[in-house]
Amino acid sequence: MSNGTRVLKALRRSTLQAIPTLGVILVLNFFLLRLAPGDAAEVMAGEQGVATEESMAAMRKLFGLDIPVLDQFVAYINNLLHFSLGYSPRYGMQVEDLIAQRLPGSILLMGVALVFALGIGIFIGTVMARYVGRLPDRILSVVSLVFYSVPGFWIGLMMVVLFSVTLGWLPSGSDQTIGADYSGLEWLWDRVSHLILPALSLSLVFIAIYARLTRASMLESQGQDYVRTAAAKGLSPRAITFRHVLRNALLPVTTMAGLHFGTLLGGAVVVETVFSWPGLGRLAFESIMRRDFNVLLGILLLSSILVMIANVITDLVQAWLDPRIEVR
């Protein structure tokens, strides 16, 4: 079976498996959120400071909160079937439009964080494995342990103190300079400089995890018989590491990276809040505080789909990297 057909088969299987999962997620999300105390009307009333029974009832009617929960659920599903995520009275717009505004920011942040995590993590792990037990390995082990044990947002705040406040090299928040009208390279640098700190603080924990994992699985691969075969062919240590050891060692790392995608989304909530990054994480946080369930449901649904897509991609990468994975 060629590589291509194998990958296609993996794609079909993963997609079929995703459909029932999505249904369960929809039901769970909807009913779990109803368990939270209070609703959007109460929060708004609380913010305004004054509210009569009548105005509360009017608000509930407007938000569609006055009908029984099961009817609300039917209405929600009905909306979904018409490709609508509902209306957010708070933002005064359709939820899908609101999410569409915030999604690119989040995807960008998470994508860059994942690239950082994998790139830097695998690099550090490779270095540690090549110098195992010697000084570079010891130093990097301590560093990765620190990254692993200190919360990302705290390191984020410390980096803001160092790079933004003290050194003034990088901006401390937002995704671009507000009001500036840059173009070309200046625009690009503006965006990149805003991205570095949040992406780095989001990825630090994962850099540590992937570094340790790469180190361990490279050490395991190095002892395998096929490494000795490669040496007997006359390959240099470098060629052995990159062509024979690393590829085998990456298999567990890709599995973990796929599983971590959901964790990354969770981490994005905190990091987006710390760096006032206009993404889904911050939107989710705000919607929870405001009991804006339509927005929250939309984000949860989208996150679930994103996680499932990430799983499919992981499966595909696995099938591509490891020919032994048979797709049934």
Binding site: D225, Y226, T229, A232, K233, G234, R247, N248, L321, P323
Partner: peptide, 25 residues
């Protein structure tokens, strides 16, 4: 020595199951 290995002296190992890299053709 690397130029000798594989080119002038070659070696076959005991375990054909594990002596080949599983992820390369």
């Amino acid at each position: 020595m690397r130029k000798v290995r594989g080119a002038e002296i070659a070696m076959i190992f005991q375990e054909p199951m594990t002596s080949l890299n599983p992820v390369l053709t």
